[in-house]
Nucleic acid binder design. Structure first.
Lengths: 199, 199, 199, 199
DNA sequence: GATGAATGAGTATTCATTCAT
DNA sequence: GATGAATGAATACTCATTCAT
């Protein structure tokens, strides 16, 4: 009998399957968007379709798990940068890494995650808190304008990838150009009052 | 006898259907993306499924028509702003209107239009030319940094809407906040050299 | 007020439409089989789709009308040959002409006609009677075996076309070869008793 | 580990489904022609529509499989008869069996098979060769006229079924009558020179 | 009467999800 | 636990037939 809520440790093969499944799903979702087919993911992971559903009751849950990975990754990154000497550079580096890793994967999780998955909600909170801290330090250092919030950074973080996705044969780091522009928009120099309060 | 190439005017009912179809398609594509189903669009337009295909032989053609509408709209807008007194304000107004009208509709047409539809390709060229002109005038007026191109503006134009689409119950003009930030990033003040050339 | 059952004479344009419709339908059905589309037939006839349905309430009725034409044609032919000097040659000529005119059009009317259309049923009866007469004269002349019926001839009449329809790029009169073989099967020489009575 | 090219044996349920699917498809195609609907076939087989497509990626592939079955069947039959004592009787028996098994299924495969399916093309070649051999032996034995080819037999083989298909409530072996007539046409007695060379 | 626009039932095919092996 | 077979709802698209102009 299992303790209430305890997660039984996976058998070795199950663990292996789960991680190649997640890796395959991450790649497929990045390449094909959320319409990637479960069959393709399973094939890419080298496992059967049924196994996918043993690990995740729903395709949406699988997507949530991939997203959770990303979020925990980013939260760790933000934590690592929390005490950097140059707070402005730290924020820029965070956004740079975030855009670089996020690749095509969008932010849908910001919308849906809360309902779907408790653990995801927790990770999201940690990430948000860490980003807010980065932003506040950068503001204190005068590197970033005072009227923006952590949420603004979160939202703008993936814009470079999205923007670039419309360029037919975009060079792989074109997104850096748009991150540059957007980050310049976050600087205090030349900042005009914003027409709408932060969400 | 019809003039060469002239399109016979639609019958009254056909014209009504066509326009409610286009309106419904615009809304559905905006809300659901290009995977919106023809059946839903037809239902929303209050017409039969078959009627959709009488007007547009293919779902893709329907999407192209919606996009064509948007593009011609924007091209007209850009043309109207071409000689405004304040070139910087003109560019900002263009992006503001563009974001406001575009709503969720994305830029996929930048990718696919050329192949699908000659008329669309033409409209796109006109729009691009007009935007480039707006940008160059704004640069000449010193309102916009010198290292950005018309293409940058085109790509960034829809970012505010995209960004906002991840906020659950976003107020309807929240996008203005992000347009403000991005436009500040296009100003000369505080501009850092961009890490990648324009596409 | 019209007399009971009288068919009012068609207006000149209606008559013209009707006949080009029948001609177009005959060609389309011959080329594409009974799945030829009403739209194609209308286009080929140079009339509107609606007009097709004004003349024939149903696609099936249109097919029946085409078939009726053929049947009346064949009945006239059979009548013309009824008194030929060489009764055997007359039967062969009938089958030859029948196959030549029938082209791809099959015998479905034998199955369905009765229910659909009274006039067609009448024409069919006349045709059958005439064929039976041809056969009986040929038998009396010793040119055709005694154990076959008019119905046999009717059924076998279109076999050559059908058989040839499976040859990819068949020369246009290849069917004559198979008519030759089948007709030889109808001759008294070498005839073996048939394993099943005529229908 | 599987041998190269070996087809893994189907699971028990899959094999059952596959064979009821093939049986249902054979009947439906025979009754309704190649336009029989996949949904009807599935219903008749007592399986889901999706299962049809798991077994055959395309309706056309399903048809090809049905046809392949028939062809291999016939090829085996022809091979079995290759050394019969009475060569004329052997040919007749072959045509009799062929017509009996073929039921309504037509010869479309003669046209399309080559493109679709390599295995089918091979089976067809074997069948053709075997039939040609039967014909030549029958000719050598003086049972069949000299001016006909194997292709003639192939083409005429299904004519009896086709012919009978126009008789409303035909007794189930009426086709034998027409095979009798046609086969008498293939005999040397009473043979007239044929008006067109064999295809 | 003629036209062609509108309709919706019907078609092949895909795919997330369930379940027997 | 893992597998892949089975399922059926959903999708884009066609076409005979009806109906407003």
């Amino acid at each position: 009998m299992m303790r209430e809520g305890a997660e039984r440790p996976l058998r070795a093969d199950a663990a292996r399957n789960r991680s190649s499944l997640l890796a395959a799903a991450a790649r497929e979702f990045a390449e094909r968007g959320p319409d990637a087919s479960v069959a393709d993911i399973a094939r890419r992971a080298g496992i059967g379709k049924g196994t996918v559903f043993r690990h995740f009751p729903t395709k949406e849950d699988l997507l949530a798990a991939v997203v959770l990975d990303r979020i925990e990754d980013l939260a760790a990154l933000a934590a690592r940068l929390a005490n950097a000497d140059d707070a402005g550079a730290a924020l820029l580096e965070f956004m740079d890494e975030a855009a670089g890793r996020q690749q095509q994967l969008d932010l849908s999780f910001l919308r849906e995650s809360g309902e779907v998955n408790e653990r995801l909600a927790g990770a999201r909170e940690r990430l948000f808190a860490a980003i807010i801290a980065l932003v506040e330090r950068a503001q204190a250092a005068g590197a970033v304008r005072g009227d923006i919030s952590g949420m603004d950074v979160i939202l703008l973080m993936c814009a470079p990838n999205h923007v670039v996705s419309f360029v037919p044969d975009a060079p792989p780091d074109l997104w850096r150009r748009y991150l540059g522009i957007i980050f310049d928009g976050l600087r205090p120099e030349g900042a005009r009052p914003l027409p709408h309060p932060a969400p």
